[in-house]
Amino acid sequence: MDYTFTGSYEPYISPWDPCPPVKVKTFSLPPQLFMNFQPASLPQFSPAEALQHGSLWPALVDGYSKREGIS
């Protein structure tokens, strides 16, 4: 897959903002938004991988993890 499951935008930054500005804010765009109805015969994980990832189908997994440095 050559796309991510993240959107981003650059919020207005005021010279009087009290905290050091985060110049780019990101948000989730999870796979179900682009699928809407799952097609048949998608590739599958093994049972062990499926439990690990939380889905039988890699195409439904976007793997969120802790974002460092954003408060």
């Binding site: 999870p30 796979p31 809407n36 939380g54 889905s55 439904l60 997994v61």
Partner: peptide, 8 residues
Amino acid sequence: ERENVHSL
């Protein structure tokens, strides 16, 4: 991830 699957 289960929330993703349920949403779908």
